[in-house]
C-alpha cells in the first residue's frame, strides 16, 4: 500500500499506509492525522483539508480542480503548492508522497 507522510506546521512527521483508491483527505482522517478535519466529507466544500504538496511531487499529484481553485481562494496561507487533500486520489504512483499541513488548520 502507498505510504504518505504528513508534516505538521511545527515539523512533526507522521507516515501512514493508505489503500490505493482512497483520497488523501480520507487517508488522513481515517488515521487521525492532526491538522486535517475534512468537515464536508470530501465534497470540495469546506477547505479544511488544505495541504502543501512537497514541490518534488507537484507534477505527479497534478493540478487543482476548478472547485478547488474557488475554495482555496478563501484559505489563509495560500501557496503555489496548496491543494485540497480530498481532491487527490492516492494510487501507487504517489507512494512516498510528502505533504505539509498549514498552521491555521491546527
Amino acid at each position: 500500500m502507498p505510504k504518505i507522510t504528513f508534516i505538521t506546521f511545527d515539523g512533526e512527521r507522521r507516515t501512514v499506509e493508505v489503500a490505493a483508491g482512497t483520497t488523501l483527505m480520507r487517508a488522513a482522517t481515517d488515521n487521525r492525522v492532526d491538522g486535517i478535519d475534512g468537515d464536508c466529507g470530501g465534497n470540495c466544500a469546506c477547505a479544511t483539508c488544505h495541504v502543501y504538496v512537497d514541490p518534488t511531487w507537484a507534477d505527479r499529484v497534478g493540478a487543482r480542480t476548478a472547485c478547488e481553485v474557488d475554495m482555496l481562494n478563501l484559505v489563509a496561507e495560500l501557496r503555489d503548492t496548496s491543494r485540497l487533500a480530498c481532491q487527490i486520489d492516492v494510487d501507487a504512483s504517489l507512494d512516498g508522497l510528502i505533504v505539509a499541513t498549514p498552521e491555521s488548520q491546527h
Binding site: 468537515d39 464536508c40 466544500a45 469546506c46
Partner: peptide
C-alpha cells in the same frame, strides 16, 4: 460529527 449542514458548505461556509 462535523458532517452536518449548519455552517453551510462551499465558499459561503
Amino acid at each position: 460529527p462535523r458532517q452536518h449542514l449548519s455552517f453551510g458548505f462551499g465558499i459561503h461556509r
